[in-house]
Design a protein around this nucleic acid. Structure first.
Length: 236
DNA sequence: CTGTAGTTTCCTGGTT
DNA sequence: TAACCAGGAAACTACA
């Protein structure tokens, strides 16, 4: 993945960069400056309006936040502003971002479309560690919310164990098959061994208010609402 | 330190 | 009767 940066498709239109140039050299930002950034910063400005500086900082932010090995990314390929970044085709992006290409592209598209809400399903992102010895903390991304946990379980049959199943995949309708097991699993994630389906379902019912879930008039059946995302097939 | 979001816990009452 | 569902109320926790 360290193809020559002198290829014509290199998106830096102003300079030929040293592929090993670090993000600090490019952005002129120190780690301390960078540390002050948070999720809200990256969503407060649409990616199209990011400066070159911001693009570099965003990459470093992702590395830091998701424990990606910055050495696997050629920062010099991203010496571009936000508009150029957004105008990259997926192919160009993958080419430039190397092994984390799909992952970062995925995150960027999400910021563009939904602000800072990431999809975390390994199947959807089609990420694997086989190309690199860097470990991707896919499972532990921003899926700390209950509905995301449920969504990801639905999208990962291997983790699911028959706890949840789709009733109508296209409409986002699903059924809780093993309520007790679901509660136990959620409790495990939240390090709370007192979790029960009674309490979990109360939390699910709060989602009706926010449009994350819609009410379905059947026992143990729920439906993703207009404000839930990432559950649809072939759609980011 | 203050406010808010997202639960968690508990509860009363109704339904399957 | 057990398991669920509907929400109100209040406590709790992480984060901005």
């Amino acid at each position: 993945m360290l193809e020559s940066v002198t290829q014509s498709m290199c998106l830096s239109n102003t300079m030929v960069c040293d592929p090993l140039m670090s993000w600090t050299e490019l952005s002129g930002t120190t780690k301390d400056d960078y540390a002050t950034y948070s999720y809200s910063f990256w969503t407060s400005i649409h990616p199209e309006y990011w400066s070159k500086h911001n693009v570099c900082e965003w990459l470093q932010f992702c590395c830091d936040q998701y424990k990606l090995d910055a050495n696997c990314i050629s920062f010099s390929r991203f010496n571009i502003n936000g508009l150029q970044l957004c105008n990259m085709t997926q192919e160009e992006f993958l080419e430039a971002a190397g092994i984390y290409g799909e992952y970062l592209y995925f995150i960027l598209q999400n910021i563009r479309m939904h602000g800072i809400s990431f999809f975390t399903d390994a199947e959807e992102t089609k990420l694997s560690n086989k190309d690199c010895n860097c470990l991707l903390p896919i499972q532990d991304l921003q899926n700390s919310h209950l509905w995301e946990f449920v969504r990801d379980l639905l999208l990962s049959p291997e983790k699911n164990g028959g706890i949840l199943e789709w009733e109508d995949r296209g409409q986002g309708i699903f059924r809780v098959v093993k309520s007790e097991a679901l509660a136990k699993m959620w409790g495990q994630k939240k390090k709370n061994d007192r979790m029960t389906y009674e309490k979990l379902s109360r939390a699910l019912r709060y989602y009706y208010k926010t449009g994350i879930l819609e009410r379905v008039d059947r026992r143990l059946v729920y439906k993703f609402g207009k404000n839930a995302h990432g559950w649809q097939e072939n759609k980011i």
